[in-house]
């Protein structure tokens, strides 16, 4: 899968100026911003009246819970079940 690029890939200079995202504290800030946005998004359920087709999607927090639980299940099933079944060494098909 690895091609030789046209030229050698340049590497970071030792005296490179660190970026804002390089600091762990700032990454935590981004995470907190997301937590707050999520909380606000759920609270909007009080403001906006939903008119769903299915009936059950009008429940408070349905989409939030479904999105969160669905994604966690997706990742955990993929990691702990699917990987166990299908993962092989990288050179599996090589002769």
């Amino acid at each position: 899968m690895t091609d030789h690029p046209e030229t050698e890939v340049p590497m970071a200079a030792p005296d490179e100026r660190p970026r804002w995202l390089d600091s762990k504290a700032n990454v935590t800030k981004v995470a907190w911003a997301l937590y707050i946005v999520c909380a606000i998004a759920v609270l909007f359920d009080f403001v906006i009246h939903r008119h769903g087709d299915t009936g059950f999607d009008e429940t408070f927090g349905f989409y939030a819970a479904y999105g969160f639980v669905g994604s966690v299940l997706l990742v955990l099933v993929a990691r702990h079940i699917l990987r166990r079944i299908v993962m092989r060494p990288e050179d599996y098909y090589d002769d």
Partner: peptide
Amino acid sequence: QLLFFSAL
């Protein structure tokens, strides 16, 4: 909501 909680 769906997407932000997936990101969460």
